[in-house]
Nucleic acid binder design. Structure first.
Lengths: 148, 148
DNA sequence: GTAACTGCAAAAACTTTGCTGAGTT
DNA sequence: AACTCAGCAAAGTTTTTGCAGTTAC
């Protein structure tokens, strides 16, 4: 199946971003960005590695790290503030917030108009640019386990 | 000077928590918790190590790590969600939010009634317990540098 | 006195870097 | 053809672990 045609938003987005920055559009970047864009659990580099490998067995973990850094610098992915041992990434650049499981460290997106915030502003010399909300608690699975 | 008398809230808090949990009140725990409670920049383990060492030259970094984990399990400190290479801790357990500098990774506390949030609730199987807000931007120093 | 804790050093886990052959433009 | 990039392996950080002597209770 042919996936790299025009109606492939992640591919087009990556292509445009690379072109604008003068970077090569390599198969690794395509595969890694696609895997990230299709993930909704904010994967660690290692998790992304495991998802890309089936499609591209030769890929290396070092390339995952380098590529994630590249995607962040292109502005099409971000590193999430997270607790725990590894970095976590997200390709969803729209405004959204996070549900963080304090037990298993899973992170899911959510949007909630009751949590809409006033626009960032200046505070005490600090120049605000964006706001993110973390709701901590227990995810469905862990809260179920806790009850069992 | 005598610091361990009754009018020493951090010491009393730690003492009570240790007693309740059946843990020993060691000089290391006292020094580390005190250093954390007196810090307002959400130090990394390494930074805390540097602050404790002048008072207790024999302390080891491994003890800092173990003690921070203990303080979190006692509920008198927390690990912050953070980007970057190291963990960050906070002994301020009151509701407050964070200003995160995207340039130097400094984290400062702030409270703002305009950011007061509705109480946590259940969402899609997720059981919410607390909410934290991260305002990203540039701290006074970095925004000043950016302008210079 | 007993149980728990610290410091040390080694190990493990995570991330970055330098280099060379290969791929993109 | 020039330049950039991926993969490998080694190095660098950060964090955890095991153990023996020491300390708190």
């Amino acid at each position: 199946m042919k996936l790299h045609h025009a109606a492939d938003p992640p591919f087009e987005r990556l292509k445009a971003s690379c072109k604008a920055a003068g970077l090569a559009l390599t198969p690794q970047r395509v595969a890694i960005y696609r895997a990230l864009a299709e993930s909704f659990d904010h994967p660690s580099p290692e998790a992304l590695f495991d998802r890309v490998r089936p499609h591209m067995p030769s890929v290396s973990l070092a390339t995952i790290y380098k590529t994630l850094e590249t995607l962040v610098s292109l502005g099409i992915a971000s590193e999430l503030p997270a607790t725990g041992d590894t970095k976590r990434y997200d390709a969803n650049m729209e405004r959204h917030h996070h549900l963080v499981c304090d037990n298993c460290n899973a992170i899911e997106d959510f949007s909630d108009s009751s949590l809409e915030l006033k626009p960032p502003r200046t505070k005490n010399g600090f120049v605000a640019r964006s706001v993110s909300v973390h709701v901590h608690g227990l995810c469905r699975r862990c809260s179920g386990l806790a009850r069992a």
